[in-house]
Design a binder for these strands. Structure first.
Lengths: 215, 215
DNA sequence: CTTACATTGTGAATGTTTTCACAATGTAAG
DNA sequence: CTTACATTGTGAAAACATTCACAATGTAAG
């Protein structure tokens, strides 16, 4: 029954837990579509590739949502997870980089479906500026600050070459954005109050290379 | 001086360590380009966003490569990291999914530069089959097994919609491939002896959403 | 050769995450 | 109402990862 109390320094939640909550949310949506009323921690575990104890521990960090002997109510847990993850409302997203990867990101249906709405696309290439990209026009990097503010962008995705990423990140942060998803193969330096996630495909490939080599 | 011995069950290396080794490797390559002869654990730490003790601990899992009082020889540590990560030789990679994301992946220069060579691209769309994609032609999914074997593919990247991913993964595994990089928003089930990494962009975005919500 | 200094390699301490295991509590059937 | 059963929530234990702290060992200068 322990909810996190309104302490000066709030509790810190493991990153791994947050990732798993995202996965649970997905299975719940799936289960909901098939009309399931309730779901047990082991159901969630099997699909999420973890254990039922882990599922219960993860959820118990945020409250007690289940019924002993029965499991969790699908609609209720759906509501709770949406709220915990903050996806109970849409987010305004900016995308920097209108190359191939940017193109893939801007048309990625899963983002829109989950409430991540790309409201601005930026690029430095004059050839691309002004072109229609989905529902928005490509904007010059030079106008970054102006447009981030005008469009109230809350999350920025960076999909540019490594050499350009840090300078752009600095400008994004200076514009008051507090969340960045970085696809450039470089470790960005940002202040502590900026949430930063990296999608580093080369690192992932090298992880596979390592696994194949050491068997 | 402790090297890993040839035991029946080899030591297990933390995933987090392997990821960091990739980052160290990058920074070393950069340092090498600027002509640096040696580098200290704290140099590596600053760029990698960690601590010098962590760097030394990571490296010490694989051997002792440094010189007390001096640091690490850049060329030597480069060689060692290449070998540890298994990127001292090229890898033959297959790509399933010739959509926007597949397109971005197949032209991603960082892969080629690091020795990940895409030797085959697959898609189910008859419209796309036969078209030139970089240096290869798009091949029908139906020929997956045949071509994976013919091209001696060692690593497969899956960039298809969630609904198609598991069935394709099963076929990939059955064809003897032991490493998969999955971009589909689904948790694939694979045997234990298959190395699997996921790049899940929706999960990353929800992590940012969570961070922004809980501040 | 000796001293001053830098930096590694690594046990031990600490911190974090996962797993275990079971009392608590709910349902359902007789 | 009682019994049989399922499943949660959670302390405690175990496993795992990071940080500390310092002896060991190298360089370089006088």
């Amino acid at each position: 029954m322990k909810h996190h109390s309104p302490e000066a320094e709030g509790p810190r939640f493991p990153d791994s837990t947050i990732r798993r909550l995202s996965l649970y949310l997905r299975f719940l949506q799936e289960a909901d579509r098939t009309g399931a009323e309730t779901i047990s921690s082991s159901d969630l575990a099997t699909r999420g590739g973890t254990t039922s104890a882990q599922v219960r521990k993860d959820l118990s960090l945020f409250g007690s949502f289940g019924k002993r002997g029965l499991g969790y109510s699908v609609p209720e847990l759906l509501r709770e997870l949406h709220q915990i993850l903050g996806v109970d409302r849409p987010w305004r997203v900016g995308l920097i980089g209108a190359g191939k990867l940017g193109s893939a990101l801007s048309s990625y249906e899963d983002f829109r479906r989950r409430g991540f709405e790309i409201r601005a696309v930026f690029d430095s290439d004059p050839q691309k500026i002004g072109k229609r990209w989905g529902e928005v026009h490509v904007i010059a990097d030079a106008d970054l600050e102006k447009v981030l503010e005008r469009e109230s962008i809350e999350i920025v995705m960076i999909a540019v070459p490594a050499g350009a990423a840090q300078a752009l990140a600095d400008r994004v942060v200076a514009s008051g954005v507090h969340a960045i998803l970085n696809f450039a193969p470089i470790r960005l330096r940002t202040p502590d109050d900026v949430a930063l996630r990296n999608v580093d495909m080369a690192v992932e490939m090298e992880g596979l290379s390592f696994a194949l080599t050491n068997r």
